[in-house]
Structure formats: C-alpha cells, structure tokens
Design a protein around this nucleic acid. Sequence first.
DNA 1: GTGTGCCTTCAGCTCGCGTTCAGGTGCGGT
DNA 2: ACCGCACCTGAACGCGAGCTGAAGGCACAC
Lengths: 225, 225
Amino acid sequence: MRVLVVDDEQRLARTLRLGLEAEGFAVDVAHDGVDGLWLARENSYDAIVLDLMLPGINGYQVCATLRAEKNWTPILMLTAKDGEWDQVEGLDTGADDYLTKPCSFPVLVARLRAVSRRGARERPTQLEVGDLRLDPAARRVWRGDAEIGLTAREFSLLAFLARHAGDVVSKRQILDAVWDVDFVGDPNIVEVYVRHLRNKIDRPFGRTAIQTVRGAGYRLGSDGG
Amino acid sequence: MRVLVVDDEQRLARTLRLGLEAEGFAVDVAHDGVDGLWLARENSYDAIVLDLMLPGINGYQVCATLRAEKNWTPILMLTAKDGEWDQVEGLDTGADDYLTKPCSFPVLVARLRAVSRRGARERPTQLEVGDLRLDPAARRVWRGDAEIGLTAREFSLLAFLARHAGDVVSKRQILDAVWDVDFVGDPNIVEVYVRHLRNKIDRPFGRTAIQTVRGAGYRLGSDGG
DNA sequence: GTGTGCCTTCAGCTCGCGTTCAGGTGCGGT
DNA sequence: ACCGCACCTGAACGCGAGCTGAAGGCACAC
C-alpha cells in the first residue's frame, strides 16, 4: 500500500508518516501543492492524504488538477475548518472522502483503507494476457483451464506484470511496486521470483510469456506464449 | 429514483434534500423513526438514507423492523463519528452500507447509487455458497439439509465471508467489518473464529469451504467443498 | 451463589515462504 | 577471441503467518 501525504505542517506530516508506516503503509511526503502534484503524477499511489490548506496551490486545486488529468487515485481530504457539513454544499472537487482536523489516528487509517479499497474495486475484475487469466479479487490464476497455485509474492509480481502487459518494466519499478518503495536488499530477489513464476506459469506449458529484456527489465507478452 | 431521508437534524436533512434533488432524485424526508418507518412502509423507495441516532425509535430499530417485515429496500446508514458503532451489535443490522458523518456529498451520492443499484437486482433473502445456505434475517445457517448453530460472532463472520464469496478478504477487512473499524487487540481473534467456523461448517462434512490464502487472507468458495 | 456459554487472550508449535548467497551461463562490447 | 556484466540457478536458512488447545473473564439464567 503506497500512500502520499501532502501537508505543510511539518509536525503533523511527520506524525502521519511514522504512524502510517507503523501500520504497514509505504509513505511519501510532500510539503506543498506543487511537490504533491508532481509526486502524484510521477508515481502510482493507492491513496493520497491531502491537506486543504497548502502554500502555493491548495488542496482543491491539486485535487481538481489530478482529476482533470484523469488521475483517479483515491483522495482523502483533510480540512481544518469546522462547520463540517458545510462541505456538503458545492464541494465537488472529486475527493473521495473528507476528514476534519483534528481527527483520531485510527479513524484516519480506517477511512484511508476504506477509500483505497473502494478505488481498488473499480479496477477491472479480471486480467487477461493470452490464455493467462488472473482474478485479483480472488487471488487466483489460470492458464487455459488449469488453475495455478501461487504464493503471495508470486501473485503480486504476476499481477503487476499483467497490468503492464506488453510493456517492459524495470527491476526498480518492480521492486517499488511489488516490494516496497524503499526496499533495501539484493535486487536479485526479482530474478529469483521471475524464475519461480516461469517454473509455474510457463515451463509446464511450454510457453515463454515472461520475457527478459536484457539491460531493461521484463515484459509479459501474449506472444511467445 | 425515489429516496427517503430519515434524519432529525433539520439543517442536514434540508441540505440533503436540496442536494439530492439537484442530482435528480425524488426525495421524501422524515424527522424521526416513527415517521420514517411509516413512509417506508407506505411507499416504495429505491433507497433509504437512515440516520442512526433518532428521537423515539433509532435507526437500528427502523432497519431491523423493516427487514423483519421482509422489506428489502436498500438502506444507507449514517452514523456520527466513533462510538455509535459500538451500539450496532455485530454490525449486521441489515443495512446495505454505512457512512460516517461528516462525509462528502459526492461520496454519499455515489454510495447511494451503488446501494440502490445492488438492490435493483432482486435482493436475495438468502445467501448461498455451494450447499451452504444462510438467512441473515433469521440468523440461521444450513449445510444441505442440516441446520448448524452458530454464535453471534461466528454468524457475522460467516455472513461477511459469504457476501464476498469467491474473493479473498484480508484479516484487516474482516476486523473492520465484523469487529470494529478501530478494533484494537490481537488480530489472532480472526484465526480463532475461522477455526470455530471450520469446526462447525466444514470439518463435520469433510469440506473445506473456508480457504486460507497465506499472506492475503481468507476465501469462502463453493469449490473445495 | 452456581452454572453455562460466549468472547477474547495467550503461548507454543509447525511448516511454507521470503530472502540470501555462491556459483554458473551467455550475451554484448571491443 | 576475450572479458565483463546482466541474468540464471539451486540450495540453504531464518522467520513469521497461521493453527491449535487451553484458560480467563464476563454476562446472563436459574
């Protein structure tokens, strides 16, 4: 779970980062609207926590800009205002949920989970690449009619490749998405898991769906398999 | 699209009426549980927005009463932040969705549409997964012809799994839905209850309807049992 | 008070999974 | 032809997710 926190209050931002990381989120932080917008564009987050009041461009504008760019990353808006329900009127910037500061941390985490889950639900139910079929919700994979058992990591990796089917994805991109943005350790782990996958989804079927692009990364293609 | 709003806060009810009408809904408003119940009985709505805290009879009772009367109109329950959840025993009141106040208007509309859409395709009185059958209203469960006695928690858990049959649900999702959004305590409780359930609905029948998906959660499936 | 049933906590255990490592292989560059 | 680097391979290891049995605590009935 990757989360972007955009808040100019250093102390709050820091608290959020630490707390969310403790909850198992991978957290990026931006301290103003420009940085936040840039990070949101460059990366793919599961959710964005966005403070309304920001130096430079404010939360509304960040949100509206992203939506205008067809970026549907779930956004949880933080507002210091009282009068809570006033937000109801005319607040259609495209945020998925609102929270009034101060709010309790468990509440924020719960809402964040709800919001990102809802975003996830709107993604395609099934992924298909050639005769390879995977169901992210059920966490199941088939090659033709044969179901294949994968471990959690193997599944995450395959799902990531499938979402970028036909494209080359670098080892770094894979580490960021399947492991953690700040993964430290031997990148060889990717090769190891690619091998596991090939042994399960390719070799038994005489296929080569996962191709190595030397010096660039890997590509999942329907051709060759 | 006819919608009934039941809320005793005049200002909020007014805001909702105007907003929803602007969205093209036909809106009726009731300011207490008795009126709400009466309107819900007399008319046929596509959805009901129901505040939990009401003078006289509360939202929970309204919901339970309607369900007891086999009225399956989709219900979107509104709760104030924190605390009120505690009063909702087992969280299985028969409401179709919950929303915590304050919430954004777009969110409310989206959820309302989702809920009424779900209701549109003939809400099943009973949940069926393979030869497992459960009646949420009566809180009874059968495997084939044999009725199985479950405790409140066991039933809530099974009902939640059944509503997401075929999909993997994480331990966290289960805690949020069956226990509380801000449940604190040993998540091991989920494993314990899964075990209880298996001992009652699977083992005696030589089935494995509840599958463990290591690193991801649990899945209730018709296959495998 | 006594008893019963349910919810929750805890500690011990097991095995699968994730990760690391130490070679091995082959492609690309010069 | 040679070399270096990127990638492949097989095995080994440590850990932690999930399973289990038991016991404590609480509410409710009698």
